[in-house]
Nucleic acid binder design. Structure first.
Length: 595
RNA sequence: GGUCCGAUAGCUCAACUGGAUAGAGCAGCUGCCUUCUAAGCAGCAGGUUCGGGGUUCGAGUCCCUGUCGGAUCACCA
């Protein structure tokens, strides 16, 4: 049963009966704390059809609802706000419908498919904090879409070719002395990253030297020997030079092994990987077809352009005058390829930072102009940068927060705090380790996901490591507390599964409030999916945990002498635990049995 | 310069898309462990929602304007 919907239709009925008219949009909102009730109908918009004052309109509807349907016990009217007090037997039936529905929070399959892209790193250096936000967001949005009934394909495109990886290759060739991840025990992605830094260092030195000899900055940057080596390698790679390709394969192999370990630790995965080395030549045919059909145009020098001035943008190049592709060209090709690979998807979600907003705006416009209907269903999940208290992350200044390091620190901190609180007695070593990871990663993921994706956010290490307040561990803790209750109930042989709860007629305020929040779960999932915003679920989970803790603190469950009530409270606790767990799972966060 | 974002308590964030006296956490202060886990709960304090106009029953939210931050506007990716 969907309480919100049921209530709306009852109100519709009331409006129909009282004013002989219908409204399509009812403004039903949660009641403010200071007033009695759970749902509030805003009556100002109804005065047009009721032809009465807001207060009178509210009273009329309130009276009708109390007399009909049996959902509303009483009501109060403040100005034009009709505060509804839902009857307790309504609440217990809300509870019962959730309790008996094991699928609560998993909406029926809608037959639709969608693709979510995230991560999509370059292969010349390890993943960093920015990638963490990206990955957690993308993974969570994929989970959200699953929850609301979609079939989801998680993909990424790996930027495995180009000048960046050639830079690492060049430096390794010059200074590597055959160093490998195996030979020195460095994780592969970090090793390749080390040579990328090495390249940069040498490149700067060489450039400076040339400038000192009298070359212009621009000329020096081109002439620096190490850069010439990298550019030469790129040229050779494109010419499929055997030795260069072998080196490229070997070093990318190191990186992938490293990435795999990082993804595993992060708890994210992919259904299909796309590699830029496979797709970078795609799109050219599409562009040329577009020239033939008049969607694009060719300039005298042979370059191909699209004119987007009618859409408020400018002209964008799609093929250089020498006929080679630009980034946009391959993105066009890749998008089309993906729809061929997965013909049933209705659209794609691209999880990419907001610095590429313009790029995706252009991409989707072009795909639309090429006649692809699905272009309308493509969405750029644009997220803000992650700043540090010291400012922006800059690789050149060494302020980049490494993903592996950060996760390790979070886990170590979780371990430290957990041990200090003496919470691991009775746990085997591997169970304890699992718990530390769950808490550390839970804190990190929650910290990064609780902020609206669109907004740029501040990553304060001291704050991220907090385990109290509006944090992942707070919610994990609430879950663990409930599990302890359920274990105790079990040990006391209290069976709730086939209990009759109908004799429970009065509820505690905190129980009503928690049931209200529970009743909105599926609507929240829909809202979050529609808004591509895991933050909505993070806030939701926090709200539910907080209300449950109020209940927990004020009502000692096992002191209850009325056995129906006792059973009800245990069962009620179990659905809260269940919803907390599911809310966290869509964020990619696990919850423990004890902590 | 054009376009697009953002600005809310000392700090980090909310605010159901135009609804009531703008809410949480952290930091500060005060209480609560003989009870199912105190990673908790209850309370105090903290606000000119960047400034200025406008729209209406009602504006943090919409419009105009100014200020300050950020992104973007390559035959780069």
């Amino acid at each position: 049963m969907n309480l919100d919907q049921t209530l709306r239709s009852e109100i519709q009925k009331a409006v129909q009966q009282l004013f002989n008219s219908t409204v399509d949009q009812l403004q039903l909102q949660p009641t403010n704390q200071e007033f009695e009730g759970s749902h509030t109908l805003v009556c100002f918009p109804l005065t047009k059809i009721s032809k009465r004052k807001p207060e009178e309109t509210a009273n009329a509807i309130g009276n009708y609802l109390v007399e009909h349907g049996g959902m509303i016990a009483r009501f109060n009217v403040v100005k034009g706000f009709l505060n509804l007090v839902v009857s307790d037997n309504m609440w217990t039936s809300v509870f019962a419908s959730v309790y008996t529905n094991k699928q609560y929070g998993q909406l029926a399959p809608n037959g639709k498919e969608i693709m979510v892209e995230y991560s999509s790193p370059n292969t010349n250096k390890p993943l960093h904090l920015g990638h963490l936000r990206n990955n957690f967001l993308g993974y969570s949005v994929a989970e959200l879409y699953k929850a609301v009934g979609y079939s989801v394909h998680k993909v990424q495109i790996i930027n495995d070719r180009g000048i960046h990886i050639c830079k690492s290759m060049a430096a390794w060739k010059l200074f590597g002395n055959g160093e490998t991840p195996q030979s020195n025990g460095i994780k592969g992605d970090h090793l390749v990253g080390k040579y990328y830094v090495e390249f940069d260092k040498n490149y700067k030195a060489q450039t400076k030297e040339l400038v000192d000899k009298g070359l212009s900055q621009e000329e020096a940057e081109k002439q620096a020997p190490i850069m010439r080596l990298a550019v030469d390698m790129l040229r050779k790679w494109e010419g499929k030079d055997e030795e260069t390709v072998a080196l490229w394969k070997m070093m990318n192999g190191w990186v992938y092994a490293g990435f795999d370990a990082t993804y595993k630790k992060m708890g994210v995965d992919f259904d299909k990987l796309y590699f830029e080395s496979d797709t970078y030549l795609l799109g050219k045919d599409e562009v040329l077809k577009g020239v033939d059909s008049g969607v694009f145009f060719k300039k005298d020098d042979g370059s191909v352009w699209v004119d987007l001035s009618a859409d408020g943008l400018d002209q964008k190049v799609l093929l250089r005058s020498d006929g080679t592709s630009v980034y946009m060209t391959q993105d066009i090709g890749t998008a089309i390829l993906r729809f061929r690979d997965f013909p049933k998807i209705e659209g794609q979600v691209y999880t990419v930072g907001n610095e590429q907003e313009y790029h995706f705006k252009v991409l989707f416009l072009i795909l639309g102009k090429l006649g692809y209907e699905w272009a309308k269903k493509c969405y750029h999940l644009s997220y803000g940068m992650v700043d540090l208290p010291t400012g922006k992350m800059k690789s050149r200044e060494g302020t980049v927060v490494d993903a592996d390091d950060l996760m390790a620190e979070m886990i170590a901190e979780a371990e430290k705090q957990t041990r200090e609180l003496g919470k691991i007695e009775g746990l085997a070593d591997d169970e304890a380790q699992q718990l530390f990871e769950m808490i550390g990663l839970g804190a990190l993921k929650f910290f990064l996901l609780k902020v609206d994706p669109k907004k740029r956010m501040l990553f304060d290490p001291n704050e991220s490591i907090q385990l109290q307040g509006f944090t992942g561990p707070f919610i994990q803790y609430t879950h663990a507390r409930i599990r302890a209750i359920l274990r105790k109930a079990e040990s006391m042989n209290i069976i709730t599964s086939e209990s009759d709860f109908s004799s429970v007629t009065s509820l505690e305020p905190s129980e009503r409030e928690a049931l209200y929040v529970v009743s909105t779960f599926e609507n929240k999932l829909r809202e979050a999916a529609l808004a591509y915003s895991p933050a909505i679920m993070a806030n939701y989970a926090y709200e539910l945990a907080k209300i449950y803790n109020q209940f927990y603190q004020s009502i000692p469950i096992f002191n209850e002498s009325d056995s129906a009530k006792l059973k009800f409270r245990i069962a009620f606790s179990s659905i809260v635990a269940d919803v907390l767990k599911k809310s966290m799972n869509v964020l990619g966060i696990q919850v423990p049995e004890r902590m």
